[in-house]
Design a protein around this nucleic acid. Structure first.
Lengths: 338, 338
DNA sequence: TTGTACGCGTTATCAT
DNA sequence: ATGATAACGCGTACAA
C-alpha cells in the first residue's frame, strides 16, 4: 500500500520531539529520559519506521557490510567457506553480500565495481585470475581486500588458503601406501593455481617414493565440474586395462564424482579396478554410493579467518598484511580402501 | 594506501569545471561538449573516482539492487534458482544481494530487516515459514516481495512455484508403472508445504490406482538433508525384506542421495531391492553412482519469473499480484529402471 | 553548454 | 535532557 517512506523527521513530529532526540533514542538510548524514549518508540512503531541504511552509510562513509565474491556458488565448497565468513561477519554486527562470479572474469569485474561503489567495509574474493590488476586497484584505493583460497605473494593484501602442495602430497602418498604404481592426476586447467599446486605436490610425493614420472600421468580437464569428471572417466575407461592407471587423484570432488559415476557405468569396480581420491571433502563426497576418499580442507575456518583479516585491516591501523595457510587432512573412505 | 575518498566535487575541481558538469558527464553525457567531457573523464581516471552508491540511493530513495533470501545455500537447487534471478537482475541493470537463512527463522528475520533498511527494490524469498507475518509487514510497507517456490493464496503478494501435487503424482505413477506395490514416502517435516504437497500428490496417484493406503508408508525425516536421508536409509534397511517397501519416493534429491548411499552400504541393490525417486534433479542426482530418477523443476525459469514479477511490481503502477505455477517433469534414470 | 543551489535521511557537534 | 544545525555525496531543477 503506502509507498510513502517514514523518516526520523516524521517520527520526531509524531512524537512531538526534535530530530536529534529521535537520533539519540536510536544511537545513545541512555542519553534520553525514559519518558520521551517511550514516546518516541511508540511513534516509531505506529508509523512503521525503518532506518535508511543508505543515509547511514553516506554519513559514515562506508556500509555496514562485508562482501564475498564466490568463484562458483554451485560448488558446496564455496558455500561452506561463505558460512564461515558469515559467522564472523555476524559476530561483528555486519551483513554479508554474496555474489557469484561463476568463474567468469567479466562477471567478477562487474561485481567488484558494484561493491566498490557500495563502499563495503571489505571484500573477500576467490578470484578467477588471482593476479588480476583490478584487485590491486581496489586495494590501492583503500578497500580492504582478502584473497580466499589462494596465496598471493607480495605485500599487496592478505590471503588465506590451504596448503595445496601438502594436499597433493597426502593424496598420492595414500595411494602409494595402498600399493598403486600407476596413477592418473585428473584436473585442469593447470593454469589454475590450486590445480597446479596439487599436481606439484603429487609429483613430489611420487618422486620421493622413487617412482618414475611416466607412471604419474596427467589427464587434463577443461573445468572442475562433474561433467568434466565424466568425460575424463570416459577417456580413462577407454584405455586398455594393462595401461590404465589403477588409481586417480582428482583435483576436486566434483571431478571425482563425475569420474566415479562414469567409471562405474563403464563397468569398472571402485576401488578394485580404479581407486579414486577427491579433494575438498564436500558433503556429497561422503554421500556418494562409493564414499569418496578426499582431502579435507577446513572450509569454515578458512572463511572465518579471512573475514577476521579484512576486519582487522579496516579497523586496526597497525594492520600488517599476512598470508595464512591452513593444513589439509586426508579422509580415507571406501573409494580407496576396498 | 590512500584511504582518502574521491568525490565528484574533487573531480570538478581537478577538471576545472563545476559539480553539475561532472554529474552531467555521468548521467547525461550528451548534454556536455566533447571537450569538457574529455577533461572530466581524464580527471576521474587520474583521481580514481568511484561513484558513491549510498549517496545515489539516498537521493533516489531506493537501491539499484534486488535481494534473494535463500532457504539453504548448500542446496544446489537454490543456487540454480539464484542464477535465474541474477540473469533477470543483470538484464535490468540491477545487482543482486544473496543471503542465506539456512532454514532458521531468526536468521531470515535478520536478513529481511537488513534488506528493508537497504531499501532494495525488491525482495525474493523462499521463506522458512511461508505465512510469517513479517512478510506481510514488509509488503505492506511498500517493498515489492515475491515468494519463491511456494504458493501463497490471497492477494498479498506474487509467488512462483512448481506444482508439487503434480510432482508427487508423477513420481508415484512412475513407480506404480514399474510394478511397485509397496512404496515409502521419505520426507519431512511434513509441516513444510512442499513436502506435504508432494505427499498429497503421491497419495492421490496411489488411490487413483486403486491401491490401499497402508502400502504407501510415510518415513518422516527431520530435515531435507543427506544426513536425514542416511538415517531414513537405516530405518528402511532394518525392515525385514517381506515388509520392506520395494521403492522409496524422497521429497528431495539430498534425501535420496543419503538414502541411496546408506541402502547400498547395507547391501541393498538399487533398483533391484529398492528403487529410488528423488526430487529437484540437481546435478548431483545424475552424477550419483546409480544415477537418480528425479522430478525436475525448471529452476532457472522459476528464478527469472520471480525476478520479473518483483520488477513489475516496482515499476508498473498497474501491477496485479499473481501466482505463477510451473510444471515439473519426471526424469527416469537407473535408480528405477534397473 | 555550464554553473548554483537545494534536498534526500542520518549522525554528531554544539548550544540551551 | 533536549533542540538546532551542519555535514556526508549525489542528482536535478533552474538560472545564467
Amino acid at each position: 500500500m503506502a509507498s510513502m517512506t517514514v523518516s526520523m523527521k516524521d517520527v520526531a513530529t509524531a512524537a512531538g520531539v526534535s530530530l536529534g532526540t529521535v537520533s539519540n533514542v536510536l544511537n545513545r538510548p541512555d542519553r534520553v529520559s525514559p519518558g520521551t524514549r517511550e514516546k518516541v518508540e511508540q511513534a516509531m512503531a505506529a508509523l512503521g519506521f525503518v532506518r535508511n541504511e543508505s543515509a547511514r552509510s553516506l554519513r559514515a562513509g562506508r556500509t555496514r557490510a562485508l562482501a564475498y565474491v564466490m568463484l562458483d556458488a554451485g560448488n558446496p565448497y564455496f558455500t561452506d567457506v561463505a558460512r564461515g565468513i558469515e559467522s564472523a561477519a555476524e559476530a561483528a554486527g555486519l551483513s554479508l553480500f554474496l555474489s557469484n562470479s561463476d568463474s567468469r572474469v567479466e562477471r567478477e569485474k562487474r561485481h567488484l565495481e558494484h561493491l566498490e561503489q557500495q563502499r563495503v567495509q571489505g571484500v573477500l574474493i576467490t578470484p578467477v585470475v588471482p593476479d588480476s590488476a583490478l584487485l590491486d586497484v581496489i586495494a590501492a584505493r583503500g578497500t580492504p581486500l582478502v584473497i580466499v583460497d589462494r596465496i598471493r605473494e607480495g605485500d599487496q593484501f592478505c590471503s588465506v588458503a590451504v596448503d595445496d602442495l601438502l594436499g597433493g602430497r597426502l593424496a598420492v602418498e595414500h595411494l602409494i601406501d595402498r600399493g598403486h604404481r600407476r596413477v592418473a592426476f585428473v584436473g585442469g586447467p593447470l593454469s589454475i593455481g590450486q590445480v597446479g599446486d596439487r599436481l606439484t605436490g603429487a609429483r613430489a610425493a611420487w618422486q620421493d617414493a622413487g617412482l618414475v614420472d611416466e607412471d604419474l600421468t596427467v589427464l587434463s580437464t577443461d573445468a572442475l565440474t562433474v561433467a568434466a569428471g565424466r568425460s575424463a572417466g570416459e577417456r580413462l575407461a577407454g584405455l586398455p586395462a594393462r595401461r590404465r592407471p589403477t588409481a586417480a587423484f582428482c583435483a576436486n570432488d566434483l571431478l571425482a564424482l563425475g569420474l566415479l559415476q562414469q567409471a562405474t557405468s563403464a563397468g569398472l569396480r571402485i576401488p578394485h579396478d580404479l581407486a579414486i581420491v577427491g579433494y575438498d571433502d564436500i558433503e556429497f563426497a561422503a554421500a556418494a554410493a562409493v564414499p569418496l576418499t578426499s582431502v579435507r580442507q577446513p572450509r569454515q575456518e578458512l572463511g572465518r579467518a579471512a573475514a577476521e583479516l579484512v576486519l582487522d585491516e579496516g579497523d586496526n591501523p597497525a594492520h600488517r598484511h599476512q598470508q595464512v595457510v591452513f593444513t589439509p587432512e586426508l579422509v580415507a573412505r571406501s573409494s580407496t580402501l576396498g
